[in-house]
Every structure is written in structure tokens, then in C-alpha cells.
Design a protein around this nucleic acid. Sequence first.
DNA 1: TAGTGGTCTAGACCACCCA
DNA 2: GGGTGGTCTAGACCACTAC
Lengths: 241, 241
Amino acid sequence: MPSTSTTQISQIRQSLENQIDTGLLLAGSRLPSDRVLCELFDTTRITLKDALLALEADGRIYREKHKGWRISYPRLDYNPLYKLYFQRMVTLQNRVVETKVVATREVLANAVVTRDMELPPLFKLYQICRLRYLDNRIVSYVEHFLKPARFPGILDYDHSQSLTQTYEQHYDLHFSRSRFTIYPVAAYGDVAQQLNVTVGSPILMIKRINYDQHGMLVDCDHEYWRHDAVRIVVDSGEQQP
Amino acid sequence: MPSTSTTQISQIRQSLENQIDTGLLLAGSRLPSDRVLCELFDTTRITLKDALLALEADGRIYREKHKGWRISYPRLDYNPLYKLYFQRMVTLQNRVVETKVVATREVLANAVVTRDMELPPLFKLYQICRLRYLDNRIVSYVEHFLKPARFPGILDYDHSQSLTQTYEQHYDLHFSRSRFTIYPVAAYGDVAQQLNVTVGSPILMIKRINYDQHGMLVDCDHEYWRHDAVRIVVDSGEQQP
DNA sequence: TAGTGGTCTAGACCACCCA
DNA sequence: GGGTGGTCTAGACCACTAC
């Protein structure tokens, strides 16, 4: 049976968890300030923080920097085998997605991207950086890296809509296959800044390497997800729709 | 560009990260005790801990309860589309897996399992709990839930080998399809205890619901992975081997 | 038993958000 | 400018491991 640890940290966590489970604290609602919670549980800010961090790690609560803790929303199902525009996958779950472009530029491929995309050294790529909002809340920061030769002039298009759609309509490009690599990391630098989370917060990274209809590697994505916002769903033994 | 934050926490993190990246600290080697690190970085245990927690969240270091911090090993590639015995998937990556049975029993299905397995209320299941060791280190705690009618007498078998193999050899059962659901959670109760990690540590949960060759739902697994030990790899647009 | 990590206290100052 | 969260100090005791 689950051992009910009796540290203060566990007690505070269980108490808050209980309030969430029983619907006393609804998704999106804000927790009282940490000083108030300290009084409530008769403890110090550090102990309280440990309890909140555990709930954050479990995806039950989340925070935006300097804006307090809130109850997490249900996760979005992310199915890498569904060859739908991301937008459509979201719509099918009765949720609303919005995309904001934060940067489009030419960059030198870094070590990781060079290896992943099998590039020669000192290779220049197009980079498109975007933020994704789910039901009006930031959920992911995405960096696309494109081989320029395959996408002349693409930086001039509007990228607040589906990039996949731009590929199809303007570059006669259809993905034949993609390789997804998914693992937990922490938010540093740009990622922390763009997602507006504390440095070191837990993130679910989804890397994607895409091949066109001729089997050529054309681009790759780095998606950094708020780790409580998403859930990977994969059906084996079935063909994808 | 990645903004190099100048808090002590970030400085300590970057310093350690650098030592790891440059090979001065090798996978598996132990960090000095926290008191020593405090002296080294001229700071307090709490500040140091924040830096270590960030590195843990990023999967760069790990710990076993009361046994100090160590440098993480490369992640295992986990491909849900490969219909191999788990053991074979590991062997192909030149790594060694071992399984230890920690419990076999009959249990009442809890709310989550009842919903996931589409069971009536108050349903009894067989439960097999196992620990997986990768290269002699604990990496995951797995709970299997089996419908008893499909597996008469299975609790009497030896389960330190492949369960899939036991299914095939003794119950003429072959998986036709499986549904994987993967998301980050925190370690509580049994999970924390069995994995020997601090309550609230980050975990990657892999849920599996399995169907036999007649399309019947026969069992489900809850796999709790040390979140730095694994990496999900999915190829879309290809048939699985 | 010594040393380690885990928990906890009671404060402080700073950075940032919002009114 | 007041309140919030983020960072940081300088200690303490306890639980557990390894010897």
C-alpha cells in the first residue's frame, strides 16, 4: 500500500492534493500566496516550497514566474503517429490552440542539431521560434530548424499558422516519415524565459526530425512543453490515420 | 542566445554541468558530499540543493536516498512500436537488464485501473510488481495488472524473466496491439520506496494497455521510470519490425 | 559511530507584477 | 508602492548508510 509518509512536506502535499481531488480547488484557480499558506500549515517558506515543488513535479500545480501557483489543467493528448496538423489534433480534443512567432532568423547550426540533421560543420539554417498557447495559456516553446535550400524565402511568410500547411502549399513538401525523441529535461535560457518559468523547471522535450516524400531530411523541431500540459499517446499494432 | 543567468544557483549548475560535459566527471562517479560542495562554492546547503535539483530535473545527475549524488548514465531508447521483448530491446543497445520480482498477489482494482481496463466495480486482479535493473542500477518499478480468468495459476510461475514470454508459452497469448500513455509524474509511496528515491522526485510514467490476438483487453502495466534513465523514440510513417 | 543526505527553522534582501 | 515569488543565510536535528 502507498506508505503515507508523515513529514510536514508530505502532509502539506497530501492536504493540497486532497483539496484538488475533491474539487475544492479547480483547474486554473490560484493558490493563496506562499506566506498565507505558511500560516495555514504553520511552517516556513522553505518547507512549504518543498511541498509545492513535489506537486509541481507531479503535474498537479504550475506557476508562471512571479505570478503564483495555480491548479493544473487536464493534459493534452499528443499522438506522434497522427499525421494531422497539430492544430487539428488539438481541435479534435475540443481545445483551442494559438501560435505566436517570437523569432525568425538565420543561425549557425549548433552541435546537437548538426548531429541530428547530419549536417556538415558550420552549416547555416533557418530558425523559426514560436510559442504555443492552449486555451490561452502558454504550453510550449518550439524551435524549427530548416534547411535553407529546400525553403527559399520562407522566412517572409506568416508563421502564426501551421508550418506544415505552408510546406505543402508553397514548397510541395509532404512528410513521409518523422522520428520523435521524447524525454524530460529542465528549462534553461531561452526556454525558461519564453515559457516564463523558473530556471530549472521540469520540461518535456519532444524532438522531431522530418523527411519529405523523397526521403530527404528537411527540417527538425525542438518542442519544449510545460511538463504538466501534455501526455504522449501511442498505439502500436495499428496504422495511423 | 541562451541567457546566462547569474544567480549563484545558475553558476553552480553551469560549473558542474561543465565538468560533466568536459568529461572531468564521468557517468556513475559520485559528487563530493553536499557540505564539501558548499565550501567549494562558498554557499549554503539550501542554495546548493537548488542547483543540484535543477541538474536532477535536467537528467544530468541522480541520487539514491541517503547515498549521495552521482552523474547520470546515457538514457535507454524505449521504442513503444518495437514488438520485442523488453529484454531484447535492451540487449540490442548493448546494455544489460535484470528483473527482480518484489510482489505477486491478488488485489482489488483501484479507480484508475478500473477505468483504464474497463472493469466492473470491485474487480479482483492479479498484480505482479517488479524492479528493473539496467547495467546493475535500478531504473524502473513496474506493476502489472492481469485479468485472472485469462491467466489461471500464473502467480506460481517465475517472473524474473520475460512476462511476455510466459504469456506466449503458457497461455497462448500474443499481443495484437497496445496503447501507451506516457507522461511525467512524481514518486510517492511504493514507487519512491522501491526506486529508493526521495518522495516527490521526478518520474516518467509509461502506462500500457495490452490486447491479445482476439482483440481482448487482457492486462495493463504501470511502469515508473527514473526520469533520467529513458528516452522515448517513435518513428512515424514506418511499420514496426 | 561518523558522516551523509533529508528535513526544518527564522529570518533577510531582491526582482518582478500589478494596481 | 505593496505584495508576490525567487534567492540566500546560518544554523539545527533527524534518518539512514557504511564502516
